[in-house]
């Protein structure tokens, strides 16, 4: 096989890890709170700026800055829930979606206002790993590994802890959660924090590979939504698998054509699948 194609496939798998992480966060929030955060990728953008700021301006070590960004984005998630989502929890679902769409606009342009449209990078570049003739970016490998660990940790959390089981239960029957002694508002807040933290984690991984700019969310947001819909909104396993399918299409498509065309291909694939399996790849 063509060595470059092989490299593209490997890179696709590595990219899939980060996309899977994003899809997991979005699915978690949708599954528990029944809300789609359209601005999810913009939270990642905020996290990337946080790391950039703490590292480049205040000279924090990168690990500390990353940790702070995870907490910071978790905080943003909680704020988003308290200020935007919870006042309209009772209204039409589409209003909640549009309100977070407004947040997308807001965060994007706020970032433009604060940082300008320049591309910023933290100036940390990890070396390439050479495996025979193939070059693999160390930062991508790190991102992939961390994303997998994050996914496993989330899985354990959801299957082993009381809170995690309650989160899965809440999607099935909201009304009776109170009878189980579960305070829904508290679960929603925790979910928002966890969802935010996952976006923050994604930010830590992406900041090693990409420059930050106010519109970077658009590079990840739409594809993440496609992945979630493809996997079935709220279905974590479906989203996880769909992330790798989509990242393969993007990586291999990018190898044969251009990166923009590969996104178009991914979208066409998505539309075709919507014809065949409207409730997602792993419809129940």
């Amino acid at each position: 096989m063509d060595i470059y194609l092989f490299e593209a496939i490997i890179n696709g798998i590595l990219l899939g890890g980060v996309l899977a992480l994003l899809a997991l966060g979005l699915n978690l929030i949708f599954g528990v709170i029944d809300v789609v955060w359209i601005c999810y990728a913009e939270l990642v953008m905020c996290g990337m700026y946080m790391i950039f700021w703490l590292h480049s301006f205040f000279g924090w070590p990168i690990l500390l800055a990353s940790f702070a960004a995870i907490l910071g984005v978790a905080g943003l998630g909680v704020l988003l829930h308290l200020l935007v989502i919870s006042p309209i929890l009772g209204s039409a679902p589409i209003n909640q979606l549009l309100a977070t769409g407004g947040m997308l606009f807001f965060l994007q342009s706020l970032a433009t206002l604060l940082f300008g449209t320049d591309f910023r990078n933290i100036g940390v570049r990890l070396p390439l790993i050479e495996l025979g003739d193939i070059f693999i970016s160390y930062s991508r490998l790190l991102a992939f590994g961390t994303a997998l660990i994050g996914a496993v940790a989330l899985y354990l959390f959801l299957s082993r802890t009381y809170l995690g089981i309650a989160m899965r239960a809440i999607a099935q029957d909201r009304e009776i959660m109170g009878l189980m002694g579960v305070d829904q508002r508290r679960v929603y807040l925790i979910t928002s924090a966890v969802g935010g933290a996952l976006a923050g984690l994604a930010a830590c991984l992406l900041v090693l590979q990409y420059d930050v700019h106010p519109f970077i969310g658009l590079s990840f947001g739409p594809i993440t939504f496609m992945i979630c819909v493809l996997g079935g909104l709220g279905n974590m396993i479906g989203g996880f698998i769909a992330a790798f399918v989509m990242s393969q299409i993007i990586a291999v498509g990018g190898y044969y054509f251009s990166i923009e065309i590969s996104y178009v291909l991914a979208f066409v694939f998505f539309i075709v699948l919507m014809f065949i399996r409207p409730q997602g790849l792993l419809a129940r």
Binding site: I165, R168, A169, Q172, D173, M180, G181, V182
Partner: peptide, 15 residues
């Protein structure tokens, strides 16, 4: 909770 196991249903009861 139809898509949770019996045991998980009991665990929710003990939340």
């Amino acid at each position: 909770f139809a898509r949770l196991t019996v045991e998980e249903n009991l665990r929710i009861g003990a939340f």
